[in-house]
């Protein structure tokens, strides 16, 4: 459990080091490995941030697939909001709806809430147990079922694989 935590945080810090130094010298890489190892042991000795992640090849494949799906949703929603902003009559229909998620892991819920927030048009205001309250710029359905199907489902079925 603890080993996995330290390993994932080591990978994250090391990738950041490599991106910021941008050199493949032996000394630089060794220094980076030393610093990342020390930092991940000191910082992540007791944190539970990456406990629930699945380190299987299937989860990695789903991670990249998730990024692609997320990018497509981002561009689609942006085009939609751009159309609303630029049209003279401004066809908006805002409201706060309630959706429900079946995800259990904290990290998965964080990623879900951030993805909903980053796609324009929907915005997470409050999370309470399984319920999330979402400000929606164009309310299509006011009941819980319809809103959940329209907003949450497309991200949720991918996150379920990544976070068991």
């Amino acid at each position: 459990m603890k080993i996995k935590n330290i390993f994932v945080s080591f990978l994250v810090i090391m990738i950041g080091w490599m991106l910021l130094t941008w050199s493949l010298d032996m000394s630089s890489v060794l220094l980076g490995i030393g610093i990342s190892l020390a930092l991940s042991i000191v910082l992540c000795n007791s944190c539970t941030l990456f406990n629930e992640i699945n380190l299987t090849p299937k989860a990695f494949a789903y991670f990249f697939w998730y990024i692609i799906v997320f990018m497509i949703e981002l561009v689609k929603a942006n085009i939609d909001v751009t159309r609303r902003v630029l049209s003279p009559s401004m066809p908006i229909n805002p409201g706060i709806v309630k959706v429900e998620t079946t995800l259990k892991s904290k990290m998965a819920r964080l990623i879900l809430a951030n993805s909903i927030t980053l796609t324009p048009g929907t915005f997470t205001i409050e999370i309470n147990d399984d319920a999330m309250y979402i400000h929606w710029i164009d309310v299509e359905s006011e009941d819980v079922e319809g809103a959940t199907n329209a907003i949450v489902r497309k991200f949720e079925k991918l996150l379920e694989v990544m976070y068991g």
């Binding site: 942006n78 902003v85 908006i92 805002p94």
Partner: peptide, 19 residues
Amino acid sequence: LRMPDVYNRVQTGTKASTL
């Protein structure tokens, strides 16, 4: 500039600028 209340301004103002 155009949206009617704070919530819609946060919606359009911060997210379109992210993309």
